[in-house]
């Protein structure tokens, strides 16, 4: 019983991080139909920005804010100066481009920050809370992880549902031509979409790094799990991304706790295949209407 509880709590925390990363992928997919594999090294770079500031003696929170802000800028720059110039009619070109960006950003990080492992601080405790004489698997940092991802989800929902900018962003994502005819500056909305996605990606980078080690490829595993989570949710649905992240986090934690930790990546693949076989559009895909 206690082991189950521990496993579920670990899975919940992990799932929230996958959810954040999946959300970043979904935001970009919805707006530009591109799976942004460069999201991982982008988040890695911004985490290094935080690390440099923290190691220079500034507070964790200043580093945290700087990482999110640099994510915003980096996302906007990548869209405006790289992605904007790829032919949108080609399906494979943008994917190759984000993979190329993946390699370039990796190399850049190794050059600027070095390729060695560096430890990254956490703002809250990394030890489980003590209840009586048992230790719960929920740490202070774990609670922070869950709450910060929840906060991001709520903020995004408010933005998309209740603001004019959010409405314009959605219109641009769903139908560029109609949006332009109605006066929406679609290019700006796409830049903003990439910028916001990179902020969410940066958050997942900070959450993975907290209390752990940072090196140029520390986010590479997350891109795989984040991608699986996003596909589970249907790639098009932010709610699906969060649900997909949680499902994946909990399942992998159960596999790791009860079956064996070496089977985790295999389990992720099995879950992905099972979902694609049963519901090819993802768990949360809305049935597309037929065009008449």
């Amino acid at each position: 019983m206690q082991q189950l509880f521990t496993t579920l709590l670990t899975g919940l925390t992990l799932g929230m991080v996958y959810a954040a990363f999946a959300l970043a992928l979904v935001l970009i997919w919805r707006a530009t139909r591109i799976v942004n594999f460069a999201q991982a090294p982008m988040a890695m770079l911004t985490t290094y920005v935080a690390l440099v500031l923290i190691e220079a003696g500034y507070s964790y929170w200043l580093g945290f804010a700087a990482a999110l802000l640099s994510g915003l800028v980096l996302g906007a720059l990548v869209e405006r100066f790289v992605i904007r110039y790829v032919d949108p009619r080609s399906e494979i070109n943008p994917v190759i481009l984000t993979l190329g960006l993946f390699i370039v950003l990796h190399a850049l990080a190794a050059l600027v920050f070095g390729a060695r492992y560096r430890s990254f601080p956490a703002p809250f405790g990394l030890r489980g809370f003590q209840v009586g004489d048992t230790t719960i698997a929920l740490t202070g940092f774990g609670i922070f992880t869950i709450l910060s991802v929840l906060a991001v989800v709520v903020l995004l929902v408010l933005l998309f549902r209740y603001t004019d900018v959010g409405l314009k962003m959605r219109a641009s994502a769903f139908n560029q031509e109609v949006a332009r005819l109605l006066g929406v500056r679609v290019g700006r909305m796409l830049t903003l979409g990439w910028a916001l996605a990179a902020v969410v990606g940066s958050l997942s980078g900070l959450l993975i790094a907290g209390g752990g080690l940072v090196h140029p490829s520390f986010m590479d595993g997350v891109v795989v799990y984040g991608f699986v989570a996003a596909v589970l949710g249907g790639l098009d649905s932010p709610v699906g991304a969060v649900a997909g992240g949680l499902i994946l986090g909990l399942s992998l934690s159960l596999v790791s706790g009860y079956v064996g930790s070496q089977l985790v990546s295999l389990a992720a693949l099995a879950i992905l295949m099972a979902v694609l076989l049963v519901r090819p559009g993802g768990l949360f895909a809305r049935v597309r209407e037929r065009r008449v």
């Binding site: 004019d164 409405l167 314009k168 959605r170 219109a171 769903f174 139908n175 109609v178 949006a179 109605l182 929406v184 209407e289």
Partner: peptide
């Protein structure tokens, strides 16, 4: 824009 509500289309 079928992904939006009637009111959202009008607001746009």
């Amino acid at each position: 824009i079928t992904e939006l509500t009637v009111e959202e289309n009008l607001r746009l």
